[in-house]
Design a protein around this nucleic acid. Structure first.
Lengths: 209, 209
DNA sequence: CGAAGTAGTGAACATACGTTCGGATGTTTT
DNA sequence: AAAACATCCGAACGTATGTTCACTACTTCG
């Protein structure tokens, strides 16, 4: 392989970044603009050089047909989706702890703006009425963000004694943890620190009538 | 609403295949050629429809800027139409009537299984706490089905005196209508039949944390 | 030194390409 | 039945875009 100039390297990288970010290749003048060049002709030369040297491919006379063949620099991982397929992990008890998160092959699709982050979110279906005063009712779906720990007062799904999943607000107190339902008819659960494991926090809900 | 037409599905698939094979998106006329269409205008309409329905993204006036957002592959156990773009019609008071439904070019995307029917559903953002006992809180979004009338006890958005929209359960009583909040601290509204107009009923809600 | 390669400007050209308009013909929804 | 939509045509407009040309100014290298 022939050598590659610093300038050509920069151009090549930019093309890669552009594709990564925008989803389609840049026009010659887009590249010129990026490097504060007044003329597209110069960029065109760089492109021809890169093609000749085997780093780029393009179709003649076709706009935005650049393809990076041999990137010298690994591209970044910045994709954004507008929709997400989240795994429906199972049921979680809002009343008494009922059953742990289980393994199903089921997926639900949600708008990406309900997510808290690009990956890792999942969905649980709520059983019981313990969070009724916070408007989370039996049958609702909650979107979870996986977490090992939670801030005081956050709404979490916690695994009790390693087997029962429950939806509560969490409060750390002296030597113990309080799992607080939002239902005047229910009592909080007090449990020692090592018997509870936070699985995640609630970042969204939806309901079907 | 938005299911996707067979033709639109074909176009969408082809765009995906084209990108896969060539490494950059097709031009409108490339697509036209593939489907033996004599005019680019038809394809352009399909593209606009796909963008409107949230399957495609593109930059205005920029050639080959198509990006497939949701491939809509009839995969394993996924349903045909999973998403809908609903117009965000405005705010509706859950407490005291605040402001009527109005304009706005805004759209929100919701899972299609929250809809009650293929077309016509729209979205309102809730203000106030009058339905708090039914787990509909300030800031929640409700999905509406347009209706001129409602069954006894249904949750409706009603227009009072032709100008104020409010979210309540509706009950027909002798010679009048009772609009019942779900909040012990609030009183029902009694109003004569001809001063209230049902705009629609609630078919779903969601909330973002 | 002169030849060759890199880097860039500015103008100009031809066409690729997105977009719009008016009209036509169906199908689907209300 | 009317209204709304989906599908397509053909023409036309204007800009986006690739490409070439002529010219300047380095740097590198045999």
């Amino acid at each position: 392989m022939k050598g590659i100039t610093q300038r050509q390297q920069d151009v090549l990288s930019y093309i890669g970044e552009y594709v990564e970010e925008k989803g389609f290749p840049p026009a010659v003048r887009d590249i010129a603009k990026r490097f504060n060049l007044a003329s597209a002709a110069g960029v065109h030369k760089h492109i021809k050089a890169l093609v000749r040297k085997g780093y780029l491919a393009k179709e003649k006379y076709i706009s935005r047909s650049l393809r990076v063949i041999r990137p010298n620099i690994p591209a970044r991982n910045t994709r954004e989706m507008q929709f997400a397929e989240l795994p429906l992990a199972g049921y979680v008890a809002a009343g008494q702890p009922i059953e742990a998160v289980e393994q199903g092959g089921e997926y639900v699709t949600v708008p990406a703006d309900l997510l808290s982050r690009p990956t890792g979110n999942y969905v649980l279906k709520v059983r019981g009425d313990s969070m009724i005063e916070e408007c989370i009712a039996d049958g609702d779906y909650v979107i979870m963000e996986p977490r090992e720990s939670a801030e005081n007062g956050e709404m979490v799904v916690a695994l009790i004694n390693g087997q029962e999943a429950t939806l509560k607000r969490i409060y750390r107190e002296a030597g113990r943890v309080r799992l607080q339902p939002s239902n005047a008819a229910m009592d909080p659960i007090f449990i020692s620190d090592q018997d509870v494991r936070v699985q995640g926090i609630v970042v969204g809900i939806w309901r079907r009538y």
